[in-house]
Each structure stands twice: as C-alpha cells, then as structure tokens.
C-alpha cells in the first residue's frame, strides 16, 4: 500500500502530462476535393495522377495555360530555405515549339531556368516508354555561376495528341549538399501515374 502511495503522485503526474499532450491530428488532405478512388486526384477535369505525399505541396502558378507545379524544401521547418529545395511540374506548353522530342529538348533547355543563369552540363537524352507511350528522358546537371549553387534536373517529354508536353523536376543544392534520390523517385511515380482524362483543346480544335 505504501509502495502504491509512493508511486501514485508520479502516476498522476504521468496521466496529467498525457492528458495535456496534444493529440496528433491528421493533416487535412490538400487534394481532398479532387481525390478519386485509388488515391489519385482529378485535376481540372483534364488529368488524373497520384500526387506526391507531404511535404510536397502545390504551387500557385497564376498562369493561364494548364500547368501544375509541386514544391518541397529540404527542411520544412524553414520553408523555402534556398538553395535546398525541389520542384516538380507538368507543363502543357513547355518551352520550345518542335513537335519532335529531341529538337524540343534543346529548345526547352535554352530557356529552362534562364533567369538563374544556370550553366548546364551536356544533357543525357534517353528514349523511354511510359505506360506504352514513347517518351524522352533528359537528365542534366547545372551550376549557378555566382554562388555556385548546384542543380540536378530530370525532364520527361511526352506527346498529348500532336503536341509535346513535359514533366520536370529540379533540385537545387548548396555546394557540398547531396541531391535526393527519394525526390527523383517521387517524380518518377508522379509521371508514371499521370493520365490524360480527355482529348486536349488542340485535339478537339
């Protein structure tokens, strides 16, 4: 009995601490209104895809053309801490104009991250097949010439109807910080899950 009395205050303190501890509330699903069965989302009635899980979050592009961008910083305690961040996107109208993959890739890289003045290495172009469809994978590294921030990017060109569309991811890192293979894996899953739900504006024109 004495033993129980000795431990009771400690037990009560433990219970009080447990009662005060905040319950871990599930984070609201940012894609809830678009969520479909199987975990995919239907975006603007145009595309269906499985979005990467948090901390990836959608970026508001404020653009007229159909584009979708997702972002995560390396340290979510300091969102946007540059230069350690990754951005992935789908672009309905990627830079360039050719309807063949290789020339489009070169046109694209002329303007891709142009404002950052990135010096790109020679891009590695690999024809691939995604869900039975021909695509071109471009992998390229780069460096920003002033502060020597480094970049790794992966771009996938595909056709939607006659036109070329693109998926891309870029990772920025300060010199010496490693790039994330997990972010590239999330990108690959995002691309593999992506489906066009209906014919595009141009296919209907």
């Amino acid at each position: 009995m004495n033993c129980l009395l000795r431990w009771l205050p400690l037990l009560l303190a433990g219970l009080l601490v447990a009662a005060c501890a905040p319950a871990i509330a599930p984070q609201p699903d940012p894609w809830q209104t678009m969520r479909q069965s199987g975990g995919s989302v239907l975006w603007l009635g145009e595309y269906r895809f499985v979005p990467p899980p948090p901390p990836w979050q959608e970026l508001d592009l404020n653009e007229n053309d159909l584009s979708l961008a997702l972002y995560r910083s390396c340290d979510m305690a300091e969102p946007g801490k540059f230069p350690c961040e990754s951005t992935m996107a789908y672009a309905e109208e990627p830079f360039g104009y050719s309807r063949e993959f290789e020339p489009r890739a070169h046109e694209f890289l002329k303007r891709y991250l142009w404002a950052s003045r990135v010096r790109f290495s020679t891009p590695e172009l690999t024809p691939i097949v995604i869900d039975g469809r021909q695509a071109l994978l471009v992998q390229v590294a780069g460096e920003e010439p002033v502060k020597h921030h480094r970049l790794q990017a992966r771009i996938v060109f595909m056709h939607r109807g006659e036109r070329v569309v693109a998926f891309f991811i870029n990772q920025w890192r300060a010199d010496g910080l490693p790039f994330s293979t997990a972010d590239f894996a999330e990108f690959d899953r995002f691309v593999a899950s992506f489906r066009f739900v209906k014919p595009s504006f141009y296919e209907n024109l």
């Binding site: 109208e93 830079f95 360039g96 036109r163 141009y202």
Partner: peptide, 11 residues
C-alpha cells in the same frame, strides 16, 4: 512569339 511558332502548323 514562341507560342505563335508552336501554333504555326495550326495556323
């Protein structure tokens, strides 16, 4: 301008 170049085949 690039957008017009992209649409030339449709024009």
């Amino acid at each position: 301008m690039e957008g017009h170049q992209r649409n030339l085949y449709l024009y």
